[in-house]
Design a protein around this nucleic acid. Structure first.
Length: 325
RNA sequence: CUUCACUAUGGG
């Protein structure tokens, strides 16, 4: 339509389209557009190349990402901090922290200063590998480079610490974060409350939640999901159900995860009838069960030796195109 | 127009 109207697409037009196509994994179409732009004498720029590097890295093809970087250098479109961050993230996602650190060092050698995202990416990589001390070391290195940890930095570290059961260190870091004036996001709260629950500190999680409530900060379904799950697994199903009731007072919509968590909780309580009832209710409200929901209820029935029920749900899920596991 | 918090929380 642009072309018909004589408005010529420029490099940004093509970049936007290529980016969208890459996000949907439509490599063929992306390649086609890349060729088309060159045919029109619109040449890819650093943004274009960075998107390609990122897309390849996310697909696990980090070596191909490196090849793009070679091409960039040959063309004189020098890689920048975004290029290196995408590469480093690629290695981190593969668990190759040694390679990630090599890329980190080579960017410094090349005179490109790492930024906050570089550090966040590396810290997340180490946390994924449960190498908390290495991650913590990078956190302490940031100020030396003139970088200030952001809410993403802290949230990443909190998640790593909780996963390693290091609640005391997590609480300490949370205080540091607040002292530095970083405002927790919904995601931060989810990590915090989930971390506390999974480490057995349910009442601490609840008390933080209630503090949030008085500050109007808990109005997000994800936060409820975290706590409802923690309470169900703690064996305090009634409290979990109470939170579910509160959702409606707050005009929050339960989502498919809320229902799945509660269905699991009901199954653990041995209340299979109630679980089925809830599954039907969610459908009535237009929130449809997915494969996780069905697998949950099938497992729940099996555990209670209600094989006929399990088979019925199994048939239903298959009929709806879900695959059992 | 491009890069970060293992897909923040659910089954296995």
């Amino acid at each position: 339509e642009m072309i018909e109207k004589g408005i010529l697409p420029d490099v940004i037009t093509y970049n936007s389209l290529i980016h969208g196509l890459c996000n949907f994994g439509r490599w063929k179409d992306a390649t086609r557009l890349l060729n088309e732009m060159v045919d029109r004498n619109i040449f890819p720029n650093v943004f274009t190349f960075n998107m390609l590097v990122d897309a390849l890295c996310k697909e696990g093809m980090v070596k191909d990402g490196e090849s793009i970087v070679e091409i960039m250098i040959q063309r004189g479109d020098d890689p920048d901090v975004v290029t290196y961050n995408a590469l480093i993230n690629g290695y981190c996602l593969q668990g190759q922290m040694d390679e990630a650190m090599k890329a980190f060092n080579s960017m410094e050698d090349g005179g490109i200063e790492p930024d906050t995202i570089t550090y966040n990416t590396l810290m997340n990589g180490y946390c994924m590998q449960m190498k908390i001390d290495e991650a913590m070391h990078l956190l302490r290195e940031m100020p030396c480079k003139g970088l200030e940890p952001t809410i993403v930095t802290y949230t990443t570290m909190l998640q790593g610490l909780f996963r390693n059961g290091r609640c005391a260190a997590a609480r300490k870091l949370l205080n540091e974060m607040q002292d530095r004036g970083q405002i927790p996001s919904t995601r931060t709260y989810c990590v915090l409350l989930d971390g506390l629950c999974k480490n057995g500190h349910i009442s601490e999680a609840l008390s933080i939640f209630h503090t949030m409530e008085s500050n109007g900060l808990n109005s997000h379904i994800s936060i409820y999901n975290v706590l409802i799950d923690g309470l169900c697994k703690n064996g305090t199903f009634d409290v979990a159900w109470g939170l579910y009731d509160d959702l409606f007072l707050k005009r929050l919509q339960p989502d498919v995860k809320t229902y799945t968590i509660l269905i699991k909780g009901l199954c653990l309580e041995g209340l299979l009838e109630k679980a089925e009832e809830l599954l039907r209710k969610m459908e009535d409200t237009g929130c449809f069960p997915n494969s996780v929901t069905y697998n949950t209820i099938v497992q729940g029935c099996m555990r209670r030796e209600k094989c006929d029920k399990a088979v019925a749900f199994l048939e239903e899920m298959i009929k709806r195109g879900f695959s059992p596991d």
